[in-house]
Design a protein around this nucleic acid. Structure first.
Length: 426
RNA sequence: GGUGAGAUGGCUGAGUGGUCGAAAGCACCGGUCUUGAAAACCGGCAUGGGUUUGUAGCCCAUCUAGAGUUCAAAUCUCUAUCUCACCGCCA
């Protein structure tokens, strides 16, 4: 959510910035609604004020033992007018709020402008893709050959398309990856481990920006009065930990990490990435979340991105980091770095992490604040998150990059402590 | 699932339908005192919004949330949510 005060003050500038990321803001409509709001709100508050004053004088008259009947008659009509004005105002405010809550964040000035992912800018590369002297296989063929370690048929039988059963050594490797990542972030990067609910309420989803606009990307449950949704990322529960909180400045930055399953309906991507583990309805991910003071958030983004990259460095998987352009950046983000891992079978880099600074966008929705010691005021936090990393896609990367001519897979050095003596799959 | 008790500011905790945005204490901030600190004493201290050049003033809202009764609701009624206790069920 953008700052409505800022919107009123500088609508055209903001509209121009949002246009750069492909969002059209109808400024004429917005201005008209805003003018009406101002009039209505002032009038409503005046009526309210008058009624309060009169009610108070009735109380005083009664205390003095005077006859209050004439006073009651006077206030009667006032109440009706007030109710009407309140009703009108709430309808109007709901309308404005609807527009506001569907508006994306403003990209930071350092974000390159562009229309889509083709305009993203590579900012660094790490590692050198390995040369293979044999015909390489993709992760599906590799895993299938290894005792059907990735069992897509069973996934389809149990649940449907985009579900998988991971078995045997492959399951062990998957678990090792998650454990390794979580240990790295908690032991070395200063994050507090959290085990979070996978089902969350709508308030939480609104807080991080999934609702109301992206409802169709989620899986929803509906048990009578209880409405939950499966989390699309642990960013939702982790970030919402500070919803409606005023935290002490001394506690900042707050850093959380969680290994969780994530659930996405992939509503808009039928036909895309159908093969393999790349795009599933359910996958594991280690998430990094930071809650920081506003002036430190961009430095925190660099730090957090570094934490995610460290995972790939330790796994010795080549990657590159790109900065998303204005046309490709996510709804709630001011600035985003994507980390893309090298996948030999696709002969390309594929997204494995997305690290974003949301500024105060989510914090405003959540009313997540801290007390500024210098100004003594409460101020909105800045929130950041990033994958550190998506476990399924990392599994793909390990399989494809560590494959041998005979179809076996070498276990990366850093994972060996987690593999119970196994140094090679197959 | 059943029964009962609750939900008040950063925290604890008062609050007969009418100057209650809310006592008191703690925490916090400032001051006096002190070589310094503590203690003591004095003072300050909620949030969101509107109006406005204004971090001034004035106004509105907020005592879990939503409806309702009333001229007037923290206070009365209903519903929901959550918390606690006991019973039942359960990994």
């Amino acid at each position: 959510m953008l700052d409505s005060k800022l919107l009123r003050a500088d609508l055209d500038t903001i509209a121009a910035k949002l246009a750069g990321r492909g969002f059209k803001l109808d400024t004429a409509t917005f201005n008209a609604l805003e003018d009406e709001r101002k009039k209505l709100q002032v009038r409503t508050q005046e009526l309210q004020s008058e009624r309060n004053t009169r009610s108070k004088s009735i109380g005083q008259a009664k205390a003095r033992g005077e006859d209050i009947q004439p006073l009651l008659a006077e206030v009667g009509q006032l109440g009706a007018k007030l109710d009407l004005a309140k009703e009108e105002l709430s309808v109007l405010l709901a309308k404005i709020d609807h527009i506001l809550s569907a508006m994306p964040n403003i990209p930071d000035a350092s974000v390159p402008s562009g229309d889509n992912e083709d305009d993203n800018v590579e900012i660094r590369r790490w590692g050198t893709p390995r040369e293979f002297d044999f015909d390489i296989k993709d992760h599906v063929d590799l895993a299938t050959a290894l005792d059907k370690g990735l069992d897509f048929e069973s996934g389809a039988k149990l649940s449907g398309t985009r579900f998988v059963v991971i078995k045997g050594q492959m399951a062990r490797l998957n678990r090792a990856l998650g454990q390794f990542m979580l240990d790295l972030h908690t032991d070395n990067h200063g994050y507090t481990e959290a085990n979070v609910p996978l089902l969350v309420n709508h308030d939480s989803l609104y807080g991080t920006g999934q609702l109301p606009k992206f409802s169709e990307d989620l899986f929803h449950t509906d048990l009578g009065s209880k409405k939950f949704s499966l989390i699309p990322t642990a960013e939702v529960p982790l970030t919402n930990l500070v919803r409606d909180e005023i935290v002490d400045e001394a506690e900042l930055p707050i850093k959380y990490s969680a290994l969780s399953s994530c659930f996405r309906s992939e509503a808009g991507s039928s036909g895309r990435d159908i093969r393999g583990l790349i795009r599933q309805h359910q996958f594991d991910k280690v998430e990094l979340v930071q809650l920081v003071k506003p002036e430190t958030s961009f430095a925190a983004l660099d730090e957090l991105t570094g934490h995610a990259e460290k995972v790939l460095q330790l796994l010795e998987l080549p990657y590159r980091t790109v900065i998303l352009c204005t046309g490709d950046i996510g709804f709630s983000a001011m600035k985003t770095f994507d980390i893309e891992v090298w996948l030999p079978a696709q002969n390309t880099y594929r997204e494995i992490s997305s690290c974003s600074n949301m500024g105060d966008f989510q914090a405003r929705r959540m009313q997540a604040r801290y007390r500024n010691k210098a100004t003594k005021k409460t101020e909105l936090l800045h929130t950041l998150n990033g994958s550190g990393l998506a476990v399924g896609r990392t599994l793909v990367a390990v399989l494809e990059n560590y494959q041998q001519a005979d179809g076996t897979i070498l276990v990366p050095e850093v994972l060996k402590p987690y593999m119970g003596g196994l140094t090679q799959l197959g």
